[in-house]
Amino acid sequence: MSGQNRDFTRALLESAPSLRAFAISLTGQVEKADDLVQDTLMRAWTHADSFQEGTNIKAWLFTILRNSFASQYRKRKREVEDADGEMAAQLSTPAEQEGHVSLDDLKTALGKLPDEQREAVLLVGASGFSYEEAAEICGCAVGTVKSRVNRARVRLAQLMYGEDWDGAIA
């Protein structure tokens, strides 16, 4: 252990808001999200030795959080698979009118995505990671992340704006 450690705890503090934003949008529940963040920070501190200095600490922390989410919550809904076509066909209730889509609609729609798609679109579309970083965090190929992000965005558009989302705005 070296004199870098105060910097390490400072980095944890600085990362807390973004870890929390990711956790809340991933779980849809603030309490669970805060549990996840707390757990992540504890683990990070305990395993500080395995962090390689000079590498991206934010990505490292997100990896820890993402993995504990995966092991704790992921098992429950295995049935929600990436069945794009089927899902699209089932989208009966056609959404809000254009322009009246609220953040609540977004939260609801996010909750309907398969976990893999949700984490991908949040990492790339909101947390500011590159596709490459997101692939490392999720432990999959870059191409896989790209296709998950894309499918997620299309699904979200369908859920929020209806199946004719493509015509929803000019």
Binding site: V101, L103, L106, V121, L122, G125, A126, R153, L156, A157, M160, Y161, W165, A168, I169
Partner: peptide, 8 residues
């Protein structure tokens, strides 16, 4: 425009 901006 539809999704990215909302997410952000």
């Amino acid at each position: 425009a539809l999704i990215g901006a909302k997410l952000r």
